[in-house]
Deep mutational scan, measured.
Amino acid sequence: KAKLLVLLYAFVATDADTICIGYHANNSTDTVDTILEKNVAVTHSVNLLEDSHNGKLCKLKGIAPLQLGKCNITGWLLGNPECDSLLPARSWSYIVETPNSENGACYPGDLIDYEELREQLSSVSSLERFEIFPKESSWPNHTFNGVTVSCSHRGKSSFYRNLLWLTKKGDSYPKLTNSYVNNKGKEVLVLWGVHHPSSSDEQQSLYSNGNAYVSVASSNYNRRFTPEIAARPKVRDQHGRMNYYWTLLEPGDTIIFEATGNLIAPWYAFALSRGFESGIITSNASMHECNTKCQTPQGAINSNLPFQNIHPVTIGECPKYVRSTKLRMVTGLRNIPSIQYRGLFGAIAGFIEGGWTGMIDGWYGYHHQNEQGSGYAADQKSTQNAINGITNKVNSVIEKMNTQFTAVGKEFNNLEKRMENLNKKVDDGFLDIWTYNAELLVLLENERTLDFHDLNVKNLYEKVKSQLKNNAKEIGNGCFEFYHKCDNECMESVRNGTYDYPKYSEESKLNR
């Protein structure tokens, strides 16, 4: 008799109507990190870190770059004969040098303040090359056809396309004075040089004057150069050297050249137009028929994500570079809930034993079982409120962090190594801060989002509990077992918050 009662009780308990509160689960393989956990499985997430590029040089917003090819900045601007293909260059979106560009200054020497000139050019998007001192009329008392084997072109001695090597005419090199007034309405880049012979005999042979000088002056520039005559090792078949100089001439300003020898005179100059998204990159990537809004030396990035880990040097509207390998923000729920887990921000989770793959029309909802059958029903209101809140948060985070910009490298010469090392340390410090901030932001927001979901499920549970009161009992896994019969209409009233407690209280009292 006792065995019969136990079996009867078990049958009745199993047959009781139930309603459970749960949440969506799926077959997603997404994982995120939080402050407290690593690799948390979630139903949905968004990636904030771009880690792919196309490996190509592309047009930037429809404008092609200027590819210097086998030449570098120095060779292009001075007019190395091997860089003749660059003479027609007028406009570009950015400038590309190759790491091993070999054609710079063909006659050995240095372009002074080269690093600063590169910085200036990094904001130039177009130029006009014009004859600042016409070759045939500007130097009537001097020979202007100086050439050298060091600047050979097609097997013949030649010289820079933008400079003139002035030497004596006959047996004399009379003092020369020439000036140019900038009437271009924009900055003009003027380049010139000073020749330093290897011996007094060479000085006399070329310029006749043993104590020659070169003077260059404008409103913002004033220097006097004296040739340094000295024996030097042979470089590119030359014992002599040429140093090259430049200045930016403001609109309306005048530049005056005065010399008694050794002047490498300007022939062509450049009127410059600035462009905020221009820059110089060093890259071996090849040019393709493609378009982008962000270019790196590795390749083009076409992404609206706020961060990238491809390269710190970028041109155009680019994500911020960070050292992170993963920045994924959760938008959905835990896919593998932890039992009795309390989140960092106070939300209680884990009283549900598992997510439901059968509930596909919402994030949170119900599963019921009664004599009429069983089924899932999503709670659309709480789901939609959660979707709206999380979507707004993700968009806000992306908008705040998605300050796209150009980031170019800084140039230092060989004598500025300590400054370069200090600059690298400062840049590394800023990069570490950006990386830390980005990672911390994602970790915190992921923790908040998961706790937010847990709290929403808990609130749904409490909503049902407050309606049923003692007409049902909690069975410990997020479910309630009714003390009365609850048909589909009754189940719907529980879900929509209109459950009639008094209607079922007498039946429940008897069954309790």
Rank of each mutant, 00 (worst) to 15 (best):
P266A: 03
N222P: 00
A259E: 02
N80V: 06
R90C: 04
S45H: 14
E202H: 09
G55N: 10
I264V: 15
L248S: 04
H239N: 10
S138T: 15
P233S: 12
C58E: 12
D110K: 10
S218H: 11
K156F: 03
F159N: 05
E277A: 14
P88M: 09
S200C: 03
A64T: 10
A2E: 03
I229S: 08
T260Y: 06
S150Q: 03
E37H: 10
G62H: 15
R236F: 14
W267E: 13
V42F: 07
T98I: 02
C58A: 04
L164A: 13
Y160T: 10
I281W: 01
E228T: 14
Y23A: 03
V124G: 04
L248I: 15
L77P: 04
A230Y: 14
Y94T: 08
A269P: 02
E228R: 09
L36D: 14
K56G: 09
W192G: 00
N103R: 05
S278I: 02
E258T: 04
S152Y: 00
E258P: 00
V124L: 12
C71L: 04
G193M: 02
H24G: 04
V216E: 09
G75L: 07
S278F: 05
L248W: 02
W192T: 01
E187Q: 10
P108V: 14
N47V: 04
A265V: 14
V124A: 14
C106E: 02
D33F: 11
W165H: 03
G275E: 12
E187T: 12
G79C: 04
V188F: 05
T254S: 14
S123F: 09
R90I: 13
R161F: 03
G146C: 05
Y160E: 11
D237Y: 01
V32Y: 03
A230W: 14
S138Y: 03
L87E: 14
F130C: 06
A105T: 06
K175D: 08
D201K: 06
V124C: 11
G146H: 12
P197G: 07
E115A: 14
T18C: 00
L191S: 01
L166W: 04
R129M: 10
K3D: 01
S208R: 10
N72E: 12
S93P: 04
D171S: 13
W76F: 06
D113T: 02
H195E: 03
A64C: 01
K234M: 01
P108F: 01
P227W: 03
Y160H: 05
Y173Q: 03
I280C: 01
V124D: 00
V147Q: 08
I63G: 08
S215P: 00
Q120T: 12
V6H: 01
S158H: 14
S125K: 09
S157C: 01
I229V: 15
P227L: 10
G62N: 14
E131Y: 03
L8E: 00
H239C: 04
K156W: 04
I95S: 10
G104Y: 10
N72S: 15
I280Q: 02
N54W: 06
C58R: 01
A231H: 09
G261T: 00
D15H: 13
